[in-house]
Design a protein around this nucleic acid. Structure first.
Length: 842
DNA sequence: ACCTAGGCAATTTTT
DNA sequence: TTGCCTAGGT
């Protein structure tokens, strides 16, 4: 066994507290639970940690035995239920902390849970060794039984970067063209297979054939073999290996069955098939072994937004079939948002099919609350400017903290414009979920050095840094090391040491290799008797890595040196080099500075689970949100996932919610005309107000009529009192102009109005350019379902020198033509590149 | 062995 | 438009 510092020995059955019936909790056993019990006071029937719960929450907490599914809508106290439930299990003496398995998806969620249980139960959470992410718990299990997966317990965890480099080598080794068969793509395929728990021999023939001239299966197999020789595994293996171990070694599984009396799962709607299998194996013990399956899954099907990375909403939808007799608790009382915000969100999400169905409600009166505001902007620049102004106004007039405001975007490229704007305004902002500390080049390089010292078989790390800093070891030299390593079946580091002593190599690289090998040998000796931070400094120093950046004159060199210092500093928090490496592999994020008052900017995805007083949702345009690519790849279910994403966005807001859309947006350098998102039409008029923006729409011909070209919107009487028509809901001039714009754009792209005879075909009909490649593949979609795809390579009708008019830029002269892309010298706006569909001849 | 210009592709992200 | 990667040059 591995003997890791946090390794907790298994209890024997005798050590366990007596099983108690939920109805009559007996005397708590000693230790933690007793302290928690004491906290509730002797005479009260209801412990105070339960008293603040509403009836549903309380049911979810107190139904400790048997399978429980908690459908927790946004802002209904999900985490509270989860943490209180654990506290309750502990306090009532049902289990020791080490007998509870509690899994989350993110480290952040795990941290928060630990902290909140700590508050409830006292400082005793240290004793909850099995509260963590799927992956961190997976590592823990795998370290214990590594040999059953063909690994040593000091195996390395590879990150995506390592994996891609490794796969690239394998593709080349197979004699395949690595341009035609990109490693990144295959890495994604492997990831997909592992998400489903499939090994090389279990994947579908078709999938296996689809890559690398039919060599997909061989490649996958070679990949796994390579991982084994490297004594390494990827993220997927952290789940797949334990699954296989559990399946093949019932005795091992039985140990865990005996150990875990209670299982809790957070964000159940995000579980993929592998995680589901893992949970089933742990939860479904043979009945002879123990009592009921005490599994409690908490989730919200309406917030399932990770289908694209393998999450199966179906897991939550069929929970009661998997666990017959499950208690299902719905949490629908929302404590976060105003009635307007909830009304808008509920109405929107009601357009999805296949939901378990929840209706959020609040008891807050809505008299003073403002409605959800929908704003129109001319282009993304104006959008950023206007949002900036609103933020400043809120800060001035209502002394609103910037920390309480957030801008949630669909795609990260949208962030730039806001950042630019805020920089010029001098407005503090922070980007959440941007590039991460441990992903920086200098940090990865340093880590690669450490990895080789800690685990000499880590060839990927070795290869990364053999020639960093430059030591004159080029492709030829590295190939030689590689070949020797293969031939003798030894790690590259060892191969390098041997080559350095033989005369198979030219003198220069040979000397360099000898130096490298000698260094690593020396560092390795220091590993056990030198404080690890000190060792780290020695390594970076003696390897010449620090010197490399000191000699670098580029602008970011000082920052990199600073980052390296920060890296060493952060190592102090860990006991050993090894535990530090593990932390970094699993916890890629670094803490954010919360002290500064700053506006938060992030994607909708990373906003899940957060809340803000004021939320801005820019970019609600067809093609961007819902994203064209989701529609193309996911069809109807893709659209529904986008809608859930919109729902997540709406429900982040506590008090104020502002949605924006623009008429023009620059995508990949091209200006394109855009249409308001269909999601806007799915908002209920009762809770929404269309704001008139000052500058918004001007400058081009007025279209009369707010008539929707597609007939009445299909939703507007869902749940609202009257059968009010679409045009009533958005009868303001700005909206009408937006509609007019939509009509115009539609006409522009499809030539004539006659195509509109088909019922409501207008949705997403326009090729907005997203996802349409250079060859201009136009996708026609109805409600997200792809109905037709056609390639149009029609050369542009324009000629160089033609005078044209563009909505945004005015008059200009065509300067160059590239397919359907025109370069135009505008009289006022200068030279721009636009799609030919967006200009008209003058 | 190292450096630099053009080609190419561009959601969402955790671990 | 930007950023990344690769090929081809020095």
């Amino acid at each position: 066994m591995s003997g890791f510092p946090d390794d907790i020995p298994f209890f024997d059955e005798d050590d366990l507290p007596p099983r108690q019936s939920p109805a009559a909790p007996a005397q708590a056993p000693g230790g933690i639970a007793a302290r928690a019990m004491a906290a509730r006071g002797p005479q009260h029937q209801v412990p105070d940690y339960l008293s603040g719960l509403n009836p549903e929450q309380r049911l979810a907490v107190e139904t400790t035995e048997g399978p429980v599914l908690v459908l927790a809508g946004a802002g209904t106290g999900k985490t509270r239920v989860l943490t209180t439930r654990i506290a309750h299990i502990l306090a009532s003496g049902r289990a020791y902390p080490s007998q509870i398995l509690a899994v989350t998806f993110t480290n952040k969620a795990a941290r928060e849970m630990k902290q909140r249980i700590g508050v409830l139960v006292g400082e005793a959470v240290e004793g909850m060794p099995w509260l963590g992410t799927f992956h961190s718990i997976g590592v823990k299990i795998l370290r214990r039984h590594a040999e059953l997966a063909g690994l040593r317990s000091d195996f390395t965890i590879l990150d995506t970067d390592d994996v891609i480099r490794l796969i690239k080598q394998l593709i080349q080794a197979e004699g395949l063209d690595d341009k035609r068969w990109p490693a990144r793509q295959f890495a994604q395929m492997i990831d997909g297979w592992k998400n489903k728990g499939l090994g090389p021999s279990e994947i579908a023939e078709g999938d296996a054939r689809a890559f690398g001239n039919g060599k997909g299966r061989e490649l996958y197999r070679a990949y796994q073999e390579r991982l084994t020789t490297l004594n390494a595994c990827d993220f997927g293996d952290l789940l797949c290996h334990p699954i296989r171990i559990f399946r093949n070694h019932p005795d091992v599984l039985k140990e865990y069955h005996r150990r875990f009396k209670y299982i809790l799962v957070d964000e159940y709607q995000d579980t993929n098939t592998a995680q589901y299998m893992w949970l089933r194996l742990l939860a479904q013990r043979p009945s002879a072994d123990s009592g009921p399956i005490n599994i409690c899954c908490v989730g919200d099907d309406d917030q399932s937004i990770y289908g694209w990375r393998g999450a199966e909403v179906d897991n939550i939808l069929r929970f009661d079939k998997d666990f017959p007799g499950a208690t299902v608790v719905r949490l629908e009382r929302n404590y976060r948002s105003t009635a307007h915000i909830l009304g808008a969100a509920s109405h929107l999400i009601a357009h999805n099919e296949g939901r378990l169905g929840k209706t959020l409600f609040t008891e807050k009166p809505n008299a003073d609350d403002s409605k959800v505001m929908v704003h129109a902007a001319w282009d993304s620049e104006e959008e950023a400017r206007a949002v900036g102004e609103e933020i400043e106004a809120a800060q001035r007039n209502t002394k609103h903290n910037l920390n309480d405001m957030a801008i949630l975007v669909r795609a990260s490229f949208q962030m730039r414009e806001f950042e630019d704007r805020f920089v010029t305004l001098g407005l503090n902002y922070r980007v959440i979920g941007g590039p991460r500390f441990y992903e920086r080049q200098e940090i990865r390089d340093a880590m690669a050095y450490f990895r080789v010292v800690a685990q000499g078989a880590d060839d990927l790390a070795f290869e990364r840094i053999v020639n960093v800093p430059k030591r004159g070891l080029g492709e030829a030299a590295i190939r030689q090391v590689h070949d020797t390593s293969r031939a003798l079946r030894i790690p590259m580091l060892e191969a390098a040491a041997q080559l350095a002593e033989s005369d198979e190599m030219k003198p220069k690289p040979r000397a360099a290799l000898r130096q490298v090998a000698a260094n690593f040998a020396r560092w390795k000796e220091l590993l056990d008797n030198t404080p690890h931070t000190e060792l780290a400094e020695i390594i970076l120093d003696e390897s010449g890595y620090t010197a490399m950046w000191k000699n670098d004159k580029s602008a970011d060199a000082p920052t990199r040196l600073e980052n390296l210092k920060e890296l060493i500093r952060s190592m102090e928090d860990y006991e050993s080099l090894r535990s530090f490496l593990e932390h970094v592999a699993l916890v890629m994020d670094a803490e954010q500075n919360e002290d500064l008052d700053a506006v938060n900017i992030m994607t909708l995805h990373s906003a899940k689970g957060l809340e803000f007083d004021t939320v801005f949702l820019p970019g609600w345009e067809e093609g961007l949100f819902p994203h064209q690519r989701s529609l193309d790849e996911g069809g109807r279910s893709g659209l529904e996932e986008e809608r859930r994403l919109a729902y997540v966005g709406l429900t982040r807001a506590k008090k104020n919610l502002h949605i924006w859309f623009t008429s023009n947006r620059r995508i990949h350098g091209l200006w394109q005309s855009t249409l308001p998102s269909r999601f806007l039409e799915e908002l209920p008029e009762a809770h929404v107000e269309v704001a008139e923006s000052g500058s918004g729409y001007g400058g081009y011909g007025d279209r009369q009529s707010g008539r929707s070209p597609y007939g009445a919107s299909r939703f507007d009487n869902v749940g609202s009192s009257g059968g009010s028509s679409f045009s009533n809901a958005y009868a303001t001039p700005g909206w009408q102009r937006a509609q007019a714009n939509r009509t115009e754009a539609t006409d522009r792209n499809w030539g004539s109005r006659s195509g509109h005879s088909v019922e409501r075909i207008g949705y997403g009909e326009v090729d907005s350019g997203y996802g349409a490649g250079r060859s201009s593949v136009k996708g026609r979609t109805i409600d997200g379902e792809l109905v037709a795809k056609s390639v149009s390579d029609t050369p542009s009708a324009f000629k160089v020198g033609n005078r044209v008019f563009h909505q945004k830029f005015g008059n200009g002269t065509v300067a160059a033509i590239d397919g359907n892309k025109l370069t135009i010298d505008f009289d006022k706006a200068g030279q721009k590149r636009v799609l030919d569909g967006f200009v008209n001849p003058v």
